[in-house]
C-alpha cells in the first residue's frame, strides 16, 4: 500500500495526490514505481494527463521539474500543480493587491509616489508632485499636481478626488488638464472622478455616476479567485 502518493481517476484526468507527511524523496520514489506500473497497464498510444495536488506543501520549481522529468513523456503530461498553501511573500502580494494602499503624507514638488494596485492618499499632492498607481487613485485632500492612474496601461482605472485646483490627471496613456476656464464645470467643490470612457476619451463625472460607470470598483479579489 502506497503512503506517499495516491492516484485518482477524474474526468479532467488523473489526480496525483502527494501526501504532506511523506518526504519528497519517498514521493519521487513512488512516482517512479507508479509510472512503471502505469506504463505496463495502459495500452501504447493512449495519452494520459495528470494534475498534481501538492496539499500543504509548496513545491519549488526544481522539485516540480524532478516530478515532470519522471512523468512526462510522449504520452504522459502534467497540466498543473495545485497547492493548498502559498508562501507568505505571495500572500502579502495578494493581500496588497486586494486592498488599496493607504498613504498619509504630502507629495511635494519633484516627488513621485508610486503604488502597485489602488492607492488611497490622505494628504496633498503639491504642484509639481506626482502620484502614480497601476490601479485607481483616490485622494482625500487636495490634488494640485499630477495623479496618474492605470500607470502600466490599465484604462479602466479611475482618479477620484476633489478637483478644486489646477491639476492634471492621467489614466493609462491619456492626459487631462484640470483648470479653471469659462463654461467649464470640472473644477468645483465636490468629489468627482475621472475615467476613460468607451470612446477612449477622458471624462470627468460626478460621484453618483461611479456605480454605473465603474461597477467593479470596490469589488477586488486580488486575483486570488
Amino acid at each position: 500500500m502506497n503512503n506517499a502518493v495516491t492516484l485518482k481517476g477524474r474526468k479532467e484526468g488523473f489526480q496525483l495526490i502527494l501526501h504532506s507527511s511523506a518526504s519528497f524523496e519517498k514521493i519521487l520514489e513512488e512516482i517512479k514505481e507508479l509510472k512503471v506500473q502505469l506504463k505496463n497497464d495502459t495500452q501504447t498510444g493512449h495519452e494520459l494527463n495528470f494534475y498534481v495536488k501538492t496539499g500543504n506543501r509548496e513545491l519549488t520549481d526544481s522539485e516540480k521539474k524532478q516530478i515532470e522529468d519522471i512523468i512526462v513523456d510522449d504520452h504522459f503530461s502534467i497540466s498543473s500543480f495545485q497547492s493548498d498553501v502559498i508562501s507568505i511573500e505571495d500572500a502579502l502580494k495578494l493581500h496588497q493587491a486586494s486592498r488599496p494602499r493607504l498613504e498619509v503624507r504630502t507629495v511635494r514638488s519633484g516627488q513621485i509616489l508610486d503604488a502597485q494596485g489602488d492607492l488611497l492618499l490622505i494628504g496633498e499632492v503639491h504642484p509639481g508632485g506626482t502620484v502614480r498607481a497601476t490601479g485607481s487613485i483616490f485622494v482625500i485632500g487636495e490634488l494640485k499636481g499630477i495623479a496618474h492612474a492605470g500607470f502600466s496601461g490599465n484604462e479602466s482605472a479611475i482618479v477620484l478626488a476633489n478637483f478644486r485646483h489646477n491639476a492634471q490627471v492621467r489614466i493609462g496613456g491619456n492626459v487631462h488638464v484640470i483648470e479653471k476656464s469659462e463654461g467649464n464645470s470640472e473644477q468645483s467643490d465636490e468629489i468627482k472622478f475621472v475615467c476613460v470612457n468607451d470612446l477612449h476619451i477622458i471624462e470627468v463625472s460626478p460621484l453618483h455616476d461611479l456605480k454605473t460607470i465603474r461597477p467593479e470598483i470596490g469589488k477586488h479579489s486580488g486575483g486570488l479567485f
Partner: peptide, 8 residues
C-alpha cells in the same frame, strides 16, 4: 507663466 499643470 501659469502653465505648470499643463506639463506632460
Amino acid at each position: 507663466l501659469g502653465l505648470e499643470n499643463r506639463i506632460i
